[in-house]
Write a protein that binds this DNA or RNA. Structure first.
Length: 560
RNA sequence: UGGGGAGUAGUCUAGUGGCAGGACAUGCGGCUCUGGACCGUAGGGCGGAGGUUCGAAUCCUCCCUCCCCAGCCA
């Protein structure tokens, strides 16, 4: 690989170093989601990292569900997670694992620690354990049960497993150091009693391992070489290492990186759950959600998300990426792939007065100028058309070079038209435009080489189809929702508006759910599953970049 | 205040003692039958103070700011 193009970051550096030092032969990573919610864009960063690392170094990446807490986990989440990872374009072969697959092995490992006098059964309740733990600045105290004999611990632990105690009565703890400055080392809990049915093991167990006890050992069982996780687990690394060392089993290296944050978004599972459960959005796959299923339904191509994840890189400093950066990759991908069509969101009627009444014709339109193989299609033209209301101004300011009285513009793939009159209602609102067309400009070129400043999209009124277009904006109006206020307070009341006035070219009548189009000069639109033969429903994926909108915005802000 | 991390343009990120580079965003220009795309161009940065060195984003010292940890969550 070209040295200058080779990706580099601290994780890859570490892996290369480990490889040079012969610490492993084949890289093995894993993506370990807990099946207690839907995957979001933050997970995508971890998924891409783990799977791409494996691919780059000729290794493998496992999918492992971290299902150690039956009170929160459901198989419905398992399915959505698998679907989303596949959608992103990654596969884990037959290496679909569950921490719950290892419950027996973990139990045996625990026995081993008890035998080594490195773990004990503790009768303190949750409150008492907290008190004994000490504080950030004060050391903890040994549990009164810390000195139990190996035999007693073995018996008690067996009893725990047999279901002889109620929830919370006892726990199994590692025997490390109650005075450690790292709170995670102050005799952390390994097992808790939960008489709770598990989505995979059913009623087989009533004691469940904690994250700290399950994670490293699961990594080890799967012969993971590099266990990549987020920064908040940095404090846990000494414990991760301690368990593996005491057990003297395969020892992966844990590496921590900074999680992904995006402006105008939240990714905390608690907050996302609240949004769904209190119906602020229409489900986990609402196109405003930062979930992968939401983005899929919004029309974001998976490749755009992967490109984005590559571009943002991986580091240890906490960062918040502007949502515009993600949108850039969405547009980049869609620009190459999406078929162009014409659709008018805010219609203004135009009558071509010199075009024969009752007639129409079919004009050639290019489907995708970025992709000649996409071919051409026909669009009907007639005497009565719709153009975008915003494409006309009666009294245009300097930098506005679209249609205005007396002005000539081109209708894309059609003709030059000139505005010769404006019709208004009694309140002075413009109801329609009177125009003439130049038959010699058919197709969009003038034989006399004269130029026009603007090209407008349009739709023939008698041929137009209608639809519901869901116009999405960011779910939150603040850049960092929930940072200085309750996150619900910065919900954007404008995050969804439905437009049913639109007029679209007739080819859209055949659009099928899952298809995505560029409405020329407007944006990208994805055909939603809610569409039926009776009613087309489109989600606006993203707008096109719009120079005029920016000029307008700047003018308004300098005025005020 | 114990421990663990992090500070490079508006936002990400590269750099590992030798010209601070790239992407997004922004401005300007070009091109164009999408004010899209594309091409070109400009502005703007090493948290601070000392020190070592011919030379410091990089090494040393001190300081400042931010994040994480006191779940039987992950």
């Amino acid at each position: 690989m070209d040295q200058s193009l080779e990706k580099t970051d601290f994780i890859r550096d570490t892996i290369k170093k480990d490889y040079r030092e012969g610490k492993f032969k084949k890289l093995h990573t894993r993506f370990p989601p807990e099946p207690n919610g839907y995957l979001h864009i933050g997970h995508a960063k971890a998924i891409c990292l783990n799977f791409e690392l494996a691919a780059e170094f000729g290794g493998q990446c496992n999918l492992r569900f971290d299902d150690t807490n039956p009170s929160k986990e459901e198989s419905a989440y398992v399915n959505s997670i698998k679907k989303d990872i596949h959608w992103l374009g990654f596969s884990w072969g037959n290496r679909e694992y569950y921490a719950s697959d290892y419950f027996q092995k973990l139990y045996d490992f625990a026995l081993d620690l008890i035998h080594k006098s490195k773990a004990y059964v503790c009768d303190l309740d949750a409150d008492q354990i907290r008190q004994y733990r000490g504080t950030l600045t004060q050391p903890g105290q040994d549990s009164p049960y810390r000195k139990r004999s190996v035999e007693e611990n073995l018996q008690l632990f067996e009893n725990m497993r047999q279901g002889k105690y109620p929830d919370g009565a006892k726990v199994l703890r590692a025997k490390i150091d109650m005075a450690s400055p790292n709170l995670n080392m102050r005799d952390p809990v390994m097992y808790r009693i939960m008489h709770q049915s598990h989505h995979r093991t059913g009623k087989q167990w009533c004691i469940y391992p904690t994250y700290d006890w399950a994670h490293g050992q699961s990594d080890s069982i799967e012969k993971i070489t590099h266990s990549i996780c987020t920064l908040e687990f940095e404090d846990h690394r000494p414990l991760y290492d301690w368990f593996l060392d005491q057990l003297d089993i395969h020892h992966p290296r844990q590496i921590e990186f900074a999680r992904l944050n995006l402006t105008h978004m939240v990714t905390s599972k608690r907050m996302l759950k609240t949004l769904v459960e209190q119906n602020y959005v229409h489900g986990w796959d609402d196109p405003r959600m930062p979930t992968l299923s939401g983005m899929r339904r919004r029309g974001y191509p998976p490749q755009a998300i992967r490109n984005f994840c590559q571009a943002i890189g991986v580091a240890k400093s906490e960062s918040t990426i502007e949502i515009e950066y993600l949108e850039h990759f969405v547009r980049q991908e869609l620009n190459r792939k999406a078929s162009r069509v014409m659709g008018v969101l805010d219609p203004l009627k135009v009558v071509i007065e010199n075009y024969p009444q009752g007639e129409s014709e079919q004009l050639d339109a290019v489907n995708n100028p970025e992709d000649p193989s996409a071919g051409k299609r026909k669009v009907p033209f007639s005497r009565v058309l719709y153009i975008e209301r915003g494409d006309f101004m009666e009294d245009p300011p300097k930098k506005f070079y679209r249609l205005a009285p007396g002005r000539e513009v081109r209708l894309r793939y059609a003709y030059f038209i000139k505005c010769i009159g404006v019709e208004k209602d009694s309140r002075g609102n413009i109801t329609s435009l009177r125009c003439t067309y130049d038959p010699a400009t058919k197709g969009g070129d003038a034989p006399d080489r004269r130029k026009v400043k603007a090209t407008l999209h349009w739709v023939s009124a008698p041929h137009a189809v209608n639809a519901d277009i869901r116009i999405y904006d960011t779910l939150f109006s603040r850049q960092g929702p929930g940072q200085d206020e309750d996150f619900m307070d910065s919900l954007n009341p404008q995050s969804l508006t439905v437009n049913n006035r639109c007029q679209l070219e007739p080819s859209l009548a055949a659009a099928k759910p899952g298809q995505i189009f560029q409405f020329e000069r407007v944006g990208y639109f994805y055909v939603d599953d809610d569409s039926s033969d009776q009613r087309l429903v489109l989600n606006r994926t993203a707008t096109l970049k719009d120079q005029w909108a920016r000029i307008k915005k700047r003018k308004n802000s300098t005025k005020s």
